[in-house]
Design a protein around this nucleic acid. Structure first.
Lengths: 340, 340
DNA sequence: CTGAAAGCGCTTACAG
DNA sequence: CTGAAAGCGCTTACAG
């Protein structure tokens, strides 16, 4: 069956007995047409099953009607999927109502990400982009400003040129975690961190260091690339030290699961010999044995808010920052009183 | 810094001293311009930093320059992320070179998915779509044919109207798994399956049933919604039966991990008391303790091939089917000889 | 409040 | 092989 030819505003105009311009004004809710005519035009458009052509609209208005998200990630660093899928579903919940599309691009590294921004900008593909995994000094910020491509920084407190940002207070949450472990008599706590060049890693590392110092707790942070393999390696190294830490805080769920398996493999029972806390709660944390104590946040809402910010920014040209609630500590079976 | 005005083919034409039409022919590699002029035009375009406007091109050629993927999934059914992220990265590896964009939409259910196809089609958003999680009788097939929207069925052997499809032989792989377990002396094997309305679930269920029957193995299949929670429930129910199965085959990695935790919780040691096999190997399967024996396939390549098929289809109007290699069995620590 | 017209940046028959 | 022109489906000043 051949696709039926779609009606255009010219068809609507003819049917309604008005000009194409009038139809455009009516459909876009702009002044320039009386309420009566507007209603009639909308009726005709509805009857004809008219739908805007996104490309025609984009060409005429020089808007793309789409925003973009680039995920830069080497193939080895899996385990960030849950975060991104939840973020994406939140973003789309916000975009759907405004009939803005989301372009997704998965690339290997930052250079490829920047190249994508150049291409998208040159081809008028998107009206704005989401920036994730922000670095303390991030080359993408300058590129986007130079391209004049609106952007919001997702998950990045700190200064990023003129870009608006949305974040939640990881430092606060880190304080909660450490004080909770301290209350369980842990005096030696180690942290398996993510990539040290990521701003959110740095913020957590610094907060971890400070709150441990203030409580007189012996601490140590090992950096990884966020992968389960490096998480396992780091856990092995930490548990081989003397004296060994009695609690481990991981920067993501996959590393925490890997760390839990390593503890088991080395003969340490969780939580009797070792307590484990995972950043970013996920279905994984609930399903493994023992279920992992974790830091939960509403990533989907985070995505919705990020999308609101980006749309405001790309339409009005300005947008403030936004702070979402800090992650909550969800205690489960992987944390207990420290061994004597 | 203001974004610099991008050059158009009019600028290129002026600089090269030819008409806009000639520029278009030259840039698109079409006949209608001599090799000499073509080279000169390409040179000028390069010097000027010209890039095609995707929207103008789409409007004029009535191509969108984009393809779409809708992921229909209730929020509860997490754990399919790894599959989709790998599929997406494969798809994009193929699209990138042809400067086709990928539109992604995450929706709650099949109705919303169908609505997305209507909208995309009406708005000329995409040139084609990928259909995943195909049902035996699938309402989407008729909708897409009626819309005249090119599509390929990803992971669906069987008949789906006129749509081309790409798949791998799950039935063969299921035979491999069961024969492997039979060789380890397992005589009672149960399967924690995914959604029974999905075609790939049905294919696996049927193959499981047949090969078990041919080997005289007692079998049982429990259906779930693919979620870790239902996987855990199903495992609990299966391990509570008398006599209980000595091996469990799960339809995805997250359910297998959950099932492994349930076994532990109920006092059964893996693999001593119970063997576990997971469909779709992932980093998760490698990282838990014990690491899970799994069925691995190259999902990224699967995505690349699906994209090739879709692009062929949407350009030429026709495309054959494609079969990728069947999943391979990767034995790890979760399978062993059946308990006596 | 309304209409006629130009223009967004391309592609593509159609003449030469 | 090449050029001039119409057209894709909208938006948006610009006159009335």
């Amino acid at each position: 069956m051949a696709p039926t030819k779609r009606p255009t505003i010219a068809d609507v105009a003819r049917s309604a007995g008005v000009s194409k311009g009038a139809v455009s004004y009516a459909l876009n809710g702009l002044p320039g047409v009386s309420e009566l005519t507007r209603a009639r035009i909308l009726g005709v458009a509805g009857d004809l099953g008219w739908q805007p052509s996104s490309v025609a609209r984009a060409l005429a208005a020089s808007r793309a009607g789409a925003v973009g998200l680039v995920i830069a990630r080497p193939a080895s660093t899996l385990g960030v999927e849950m975060f991104y899928m939840q973020l994406i579903s939140g973003i789309e919940a916000e975009l759907a109502g405004r009939s803005v599309a989301l372009l997704l691009q998965v690339v290997a590294d930052l250079d490829a990400e920047i190249e994508t921004y150049h291409r998208w900008s040159a081809q008028h593909r998107v009206d704005g982009v989401f920036l994730t995994d922000i670095r303390e000094v991030d080359p993408r910020v300058g590129v986007l400003e130079e391209l004049g491509l609106p952007a919001v920084v997702v998950g990045g407190k700190g200064r990023h040129g003129s870009l608006p940002r949305i974040w939640s207070d990881d430092a606060l949450a880190m304080g909660t975690v450490v004080r909770y472990l301290a209350a369980l008599d842990h005096r030696r706590i180690a942290r398996v961190a993510g990539r040290p060049d990521f701003l959110h890693t740095q913020i957590r590392t610094e907060a971890f260091h400070e709150v441990c110092a203030s409580l007189g707790i012996t601490e140590r942070t090992v950096a990884t690339d966020f992968s389960g393999d490096q998480g396992a390696d780091a856990t092995r190294a930490l548990l081989s030290r003397t004296p060994r830490p009695t609690a481990l805080v991981f920067d993501n769920d996959v590393m925490a699961v890997a760390g839990s398996a390593v503890a088991h493999e080395m003969g340490f029972a969780v939580p009797r010999d070792l307590s484990i806390v995972a950043w970013d709660d996920s279905v994984l944390c609930r399903l493994v044995h023992p279920p992992l104590t974790a830091l939960a946040r509403d990533i989907s809402a985070f995505g919705r808010h990020a999308a609101q910010l980006l749309l405001t920014r790309s339409v009005s040209g300005v947008a403030g920052d936004r702070e979402d609630p800090p992650p909550r500590l969800v205690p489960r079976g992987s944390t207990a009183v420290a061994p004597a």
